[in-house]
Design a protein around this nucleic acid. Structure first.
Lengths: 223, 223
DNA sequence: TGAACACTTACAGTTGGTGAAAGGGGAGGT
DNA sequence: ACCTCCCCTTTCACCAACTGTAAGTGTTCA
């Protein structure tokens, strides 16, 4: 079942949305604490996030921006301010849809289903805008190009992308690839790293894999 | 450069849209004949199609429906009728965006760029909604699943999908695969067909490949 | 019933991913 | 300056997957 996370502080609105989505067959989850919203949402990896703009202590715009930096989860922004500049701002931040309250129930549901349709069938993707990896097939998408990575390179890149910004320990990578931390063949890992780097280079992507001496590896913007 | 096809019968509106898109850096192409619109659009394979609803002899809805049956090209429907039911109808037909005229220039451009962003990095896809093939990697997407097809199976399915509904001659398929019509090894084609069928079956897709005795093959809905 | 035509299976050749091994290169510390 | 880890790179042999050939079975239609 497709899961929708609703981030909204107004209780009445929240319950109305939840009822509406559940009646349509979606699984819903509401958030009323906004401190660790980003991490919570990513950990839950829903099919869609519905964000209110006016939230105590933060804004939907801010959550949207941070969320889009670290994931590819679809975002719908819902607000009572129907200013054009809000809509442009939201779309500029990477929001996928922008609707104003009050909104016809049918329109909201149609737009939600439209949004989910766009993301459906793509498998689960990780990465940033324009640099995405299909976790099922290890197909890497970059600027109109798509390349299939061999299994090991795909697994490594998957792990690195889900921990964007962090350094992933060599032990973690070895365990994921071969299921063992005891006898670690670091050489095999290095060879696969070389191959992954070569793949990224050949693709011309603006991202590269960097070694952190004595610790592990991480991905970062190139140049 | 990203190409946008504008289907609009009103000359003034057409030129205004064309000017706006060109100023923004898009390549534009206008259509004023609507008889072979579908085939022309697919042959041109633009990054986006902007459709007016009221057209002489047909409607934007009709073009959208037919286009979506045979391709995955993004469609934006632009109309002066701002009825909710039109919007629901458009989205129901598979349109990706629906806007009403008159529309703020900024809003239109923001929505267009939003739409293009969604399709970017997916490579070129053929097929129907929910049953799509990446022509670069031969990755087949079906209901949250994604599978990589071997080159030959991919090429065959690509050819069959781009000619949805039609029967593709065995000679055509052989020529595409091996570049020869003279010495046709039909057996090799049959073996690859068997393998493709098995792949589709394994995936559980609602589509199958059928042989047309003495002619060739085609894809159709299963069951 | 017979003759095309389509389907299926088995097999061997080729290609491409994989880890082992070994040598080269660079950063950091003494 | 030198030495020592650690990381990078290349080469080689093994293995899995894709491919066409071949041969045999099943199906359709006159």
């Amino acid at each position: 079942m497709q899961k929708i996370i609703i981030v909204e502080d107004d209780l009445y609105m929240r319950e109305e949305l939840e009822y509406m989505f559940q009646k349509e067959g979606y699984e819903t989850l509401c958030m009323d604490s906004f401190e660790h919203a980003i991490d919570d949402i990513i950990a839950d990896s829903p099919e869609l996030v519905v964000l209110d703009v006016n939230l105590p202590g933060t804004t939907g715009f801010e959550i949207c921006r941070k969320l889009k930096q670290r994931s590819n989860i679809p975002v719908l922004i819902l607000t009572s301010r129907d200013q054009l500049k809000d809509e442009l701002h939201a779309l500029g931040l990477g929001a996928d849809e922008f609707l104003t309250k009050p909104c016809h129930k049918e329109r909201l549901l149609a737009r939600v289903s439209n949004l989910l349709r766009h993301y459906e069938g793509r498998g689960k993707l990780v990465g940033r805008e324009g640099f995405l990896l299909d976790r099922q097939t290890y197909t890497l998408y970059w600027k109109e190009q798509s390349v299939i990575l061999p299994e090991n390179q795909g697994k490594i890149l998957d792990m690195l992308l889900t921990h964007w910004g962090e350094t992933v320990a060599k032990e973690t990578l070895c365990e994921m690839l071969w299921g063992t931390t005891e006898y670690i063949d670091e050489n095999a890992l290095q060879v696969n790293m070389t191959r992954l780097k070569k793949s990224l280079l050949k693709l011309g992507a603006d991202y590269k894999v960097t070694a952190i001496r004595g610790v592990g590896y991480k991905v970062e913007a190139d140049g």
